[in-house]
Simulated assay, not measured.
Amino acid sequence: MADIGNAPADPSAGADTDAALLAAFAAGDRMAAGQLTTRLGPRVFGLALRLLGDRAEAEDVAQEAMLRLWRIAPDWRHGEARVTTWLYRVTVNLVTDRRRRGRDRMSPLDQVDEPADPSPGVARQMLDAQRHDALQAALMQLPERQREAVVLRHIEELGNPEIAGIMDISTEAVESLTARGKRALAAILAGQRADLGYDDD
Rank of each mutant, 00 (worst) to 15 (best):
R82D: 15
R82E: 15
R82G: 14
V83R: 11
T85K: 05
T85S: 11
T85E: 12
W86G: 00
W86P: 00
Y88W: 15
Y88L: 05
R89G: 15
R89P: 02
R89A: 15
V90R: 14
V90Y: 00
V90N: 01
T91R: 01
T91F: 07
T91V: 09
L94I: 13
V95F: 00
T96V: 11
T96L: 09
T96A: 14
D97F: 03
R98C: 08
R99P: 00
R99V: 07
R99A: 07
R100V: 10
R100E: 14
R101M: 14
G102M: 03
R103V: 05
R103H: 07
R103Q: 13
D104Y: 02
D104E: 04
R105Y: 05
R105W: 04
R105L: 14
S107G: 08
P108S: 02
P108N: 02
L109V: 08
D110Y: 04
D110S: 07
Q111N: 13
Q111F: 10
Q111P: 00
Q111H: 13
V112F: 11
V112Q: 10
D113L: 09
D113S: 12
D113K: 10
E114N: 03
P115T: 04
P115H: 01
A116Q: 06
A116F: 03
A116D: 08
A116W: 00
D117C: 09
P118H: 08
P118A: 08
